[in-house]
Design a protein around this nucleic acid. Structure first.
Lengths: 212, 212
DNA sequence: TAGATTGTTAATCGATTAACAATC
DNA sequence: TAGATTGTTAATCGATTAACAATC
């Protein structure tokens, strides 16, 4: 299910591109091509969300976009905060891509006074303001971009103050309190796996998918 | 297979933490706990790479680390370049986490003269120096952090100059030339899926895994 | 009508989990 | 020895792919 939701984001992006190119409808093979999946998956995804096409002309892009927005309705109304404004955190704080889906970082936090700026957009507060700001803003999603050793503690603090979903960039496994969803983005892991694929001799490329 | 390689990176991280805590050996359940997987997977991974434990005492951490290094040997000797030094690119350029596995960005590129700095560490060159620098350095891995519309073109240029693996941060599906491996990191997708999970009422949490 | 494309079902595939015999 | 833990095999699970009947 989570895979379907993720693909929905990809579909939306592709559909917007197609729409701004003046195209009104897509077939499943075309959308699959544009979003990097297969026609079967596209049809199954849409069918499972009740998004219907025409047996002849494919799917109406406007309808799909409306439908996807409706499905992700509850998602984009949630506030997002960021904890840790170091190298990576700073970049995430100003990352434009998040807002595509309507999500936006409303506040950030850091322990280092040199990094705080309560008048910034978004504002960067000292960590001890977390409880207050969280109570005011009602954010339910957090991004963790703190040093490894601080990540678990940060998660627990966030959970204690009502955060229900966390995107964690610290390359450590976090133990999530009940009711809190943690998703990890491990950049080293991603780069390393690409490097591994690239290091394979062409003759061994069957290893990519198959087991052992 | 790619999953195994990814987990290898996670195991290494956990093993280093355990080792620096003075621990000499781990059992599969313990390592699983620390790296966020299951004991079965740990044992199967190790067994598939020929990493052996003792039927009684578990796995010797030093041996595992040596073994993992050997497996990832060819991986870490490859040079990495970065294309696109905007908001996200700048952060990746100075991201410490990559070097854990021995990978390091040796040079970066940007079309904007205001962002170039050939004397930086790592240096940031204008894009038209790509061919020359790539020929000199022999890098085979690239990170793409350019605006969406420039990503496909960038990929093709990189492929033409010998890049064999790409980590792409642009949220668009890229068509990879033969022999080039592309892996996508889509930050919006990740955040959106966490937000979706968090938006579920507790009663619907069975949707997380199961189909429809 | 004939043809294209959906929506859905069945087949395939791979990955994870469970279980347990081997053994240190 | 008895007990703990590996290494491996079999069972389960879910996701993807293939195929095709329904139908616009």
């Amino acid at each position: 299910m989570i895979d379907r939701i993720q693909r929905l984001t990809a579909y939306r992006r592709s559909l917007e591109l197609l729409q701004s190119a003046g195209i009104l409808s897509v077939t499943s093979p075309l959308l699959a091509e544009s979003s990097g999946t297969s026609a079967s998956v596209v049809r199954k995804d849409f069918s499972s969300f009740g998004l219907q096409g025409k047996r002849r002309g494919g799917y109406a892009i406007a309808d799909l976009l409306t439908g996807i927005s409706a499905i992700l309705e509850g998602v984009s109304r949630q506030g997002v905060i960021l904890v840790g404004c170091g190298n990576l955190g700073q970049a995430l704080l100003h990352y434009k891509g998040f807002s595509e889906g309507g999500l936006a970082i409303t506040a950030a936090f850091d322990t280092d006074p040199a990094r705080t700026n309560p008048r910034g957009r978004p504002p960067v507060h000292p960590l001890d303001k977390l409880e207050r700001i969280l109570a005011e803003s009602g954010a339910s999603i957090a991004i963790i971009a703190v040093p490894d050793h601080a990540a678990q503690k940060t998660l627990e603090t966030l959970a204690a103050h009502g955060i229900r979903g966390v995107l964690n960039f610290a390359p450590v496994h976090l133990h999530a309190p009940a009711g809190v969803h943690v998703r990890n983005v491990n950049l080293e892991m991603e780069l390393e796996s690409v490097a591994w694929l690239a290091s394979l001799p062409r003759s061994a490329e069957h290893l990519e998918r198959k087991d052992s």
